[in-house]
Design a protein around this nucleic acid. Structure first.
Lengths: 348, 348
DNA sequence: ATGAAAGCGCTAACAA
DNA sequence: TTGTTAGCGCTTTCAT
């Protein structure tokens, strides 16, 4: 057998027809007599022929391919979003590619460029970012370039640099979610709540902090009641920051972690200090990752339907006309109550 | 601006050169005077040109693309393997695509076919399977087809149907890992250990069960001492099976969960029965997923360096000559001790 | 109903 | 150094 891929020419020869007929028989969108088709199909199967996607794309305008770009696949939240995109894309017969950037803007740019080269028709960028000028111009460029070649860009959980830009944005209402769970802590009696995991400039986190402050204000607390620790996200950050916090005099009765991974770190730090959750300190998280229920104790958190976010991103992108660019879609969230919150120490 | 992608011809026109010169200037592997190159590069940038990967692949033999196929990205273990593949591929300038099958052989076949069409040069299939005739012929077909077009197939954690087949296999030594952790339980004094999460026919699980039985035998226990519950994997399965087990009289003092997700379910079931780990029952898992440390209590488990498995898969595939097909690589594992194991109740 | 031929965008021989 | 040309594998007119 010849090394290299079997081409349609070989199939045609074996079936005793021209390549044009072979192509028609295989694609099935042209009338071809059943007998001829059968011969061609059989030849193709015998040779184990698969069409060259590149050649086909070159002439036919390309395969339906979507790309999701996340920081890392091992983050439970991102993985769920990617799975949602994957599932929705698969349902529609699209191929889905996922790329990880490790948070490096350069790798993000490279990946987007790659997707442009490959002819992806849908690019989905996931996750909050620090919204600086570099970000704005980068995204404006993606949007413009993708749009020029007829592809769609959707921003998941990150802002469009400019409403006029040809990109869709779909995200959770971070401020509302944060307000709700802060309210929950407040109604459990807590008044000194620290927010752990701020990341100044990051749009998602800033919104959560804003919701936290808003809830405090609504309950009549002065602005100084807010205590935000800007340690960033991730379990190690949460562990470190909480350990630090526990060294001083405890000025708080509850902690609101920026996401569930930070909460995991905080929980661990508290346990290492031989303190109890929720008896000594109450803790809440954000995202409700699949294993939040298995933390010690099971974590009260804000459920952000991540898979639905991914599905919505492709659904919206494929439904909306290009003219709907700039549309902003907000998805709702809700609190899931477990066992990490109790009344403040001595409140009873 | 013209709708659709800008081609090299437009760049050439704008730079006042032929397409060949433009191509040479852009690719950089042919001597082109600096001045000419500068003009071309500038024209390309002004037009925001990106090469059509399909056209390039058609003539140049294709981009370096690797594909990883997993059951689901939301499984922490698979996500880590995928991240390893991704990282190693990126290090070498390869594009990496990840596909999820949901465990459906049909989707697996579709995805492999797609990858053949796209010209992937490396396909990595991850995860244990039930090794039946359908599986064997499916994989034999993948291997043969991929090999015919010069692509590599690597099987991660699943067996090659036949040593002669053109595929590499790299996996963990499941039997050794299971034997070690069972031995750990045994030396803590446990004699009645149930294995939770068998999946008869699944190669990975069967190997773990074999290791478990081997350890029991080594400690002089009779074959009847083994108690395997074939509930399959996943947190819900572990929860359900453990709940069931707890209803009867407790004939065991420890449980060896088939993987950490099963352990998570089992832990939850035990907590719901108001029993304590490790005071009443000891529990161990398998894989050491990132959050195993955050379980209640922190889980003693077998560390399988998942990311390293992914990296090794691409490293080996790219290094070994095609003639090395059929080679079998075994990666080692080790126990990580945390707090879910204690002496058996009443052993003191 | 089928074949011949053009052409998708690009790179690599071959000329000049 | 640069341009001309052929051709990658496929689909799709346009003839027949």
């Amino acid at each position: 057998m010849a090394r290299g891929r079997v081409t349609i020419r070989e199939v045609a020869v074996r079936a005793g027809v021209s390549t044009a007929t072979a192509s028609r028989a295989l694609s099935g969108n042209h009338p071809v007599p059943a007998a001829t088709r059968a011969r061609v199909v059989r030849a193709a199967r015998e040779l184990d022929y698969v069409a060259n996607a590149h050649a086909r794309a070159l002439v036919g305008g390309g395969r339906k391919m979507a790309a999701v770009v996340v920081r890392q696949v091992t983050s439970p939240f991102y993985a769920q979003v990617a799975e949602g995109v994957e599932a929705e894309a698969a349902d529609r017969g699209w191929l889905c590619v996922v790329g990880a950037t490790g948070g490096d803007p350069q790798r993000e740019m490279d990946f987007v460029r790659l997707m442009r080269e490959e002819g992806a028709r849908l690019v989905i960028l996931v996750g909050g970012v620090v919204e600086d000028d570099a970000y704005r111009s980068r995204v404006a460029q993606y949007a413009q370039a993708l749009d020029a070649s007829g592809a769609r860009l959707v921003l998941c959980g990150r802002p469009a640099p400019d409403p006029g830009i040809p990109a869709l944005v779909v995200e959770f209402d971070n401020e509302a979610g944060a307000r709700a769970i802060t309210g929950y802590l407040l109604s459990a009696g807590h008044r000194r709540i620290v927010f752990l995991g701020g990341l100044p400039g990051n749009t998602a986190l800033d919104a959560r902090v804003a919701g936290y402050r808003a809830a405090l204000a609504e309950h009549g607390l002065p602005p100084e009641a807010a205590h935000v620790v800007d340690c960033g996200l991730g379990r190690p950050a949460g562990l470190r920051a909480m350990t630090e916090l526990l060294k001083g005099r405890r000025e708080f009765t509850a902690v609101f972690a920026g996401d569930d991974m930070v909460a995991a770190g905080a929980l661990r730090a508290i346990a290492e200090a031989a303190l109890s959750v929720p008896d000594d300190i109450s803790v809440v998280g954000y995202n409700d990752i699949p294993l939040a229920e298995d933390f010690n104790p099971p974590l009260t958190t804000v459920r952000t339907p991540a898979e639905e976010l991914g599905r919505a991103a492709v659904r919206i992108a494929l439904r909306d006309a290009a003219s709907a660019a700039g549309r902003h879609h907000l998805l709702g969230t809700h609190i899931v109550v477990r066992r990490s919150v109790g009344p403040p120490r001595g409140a009873l």
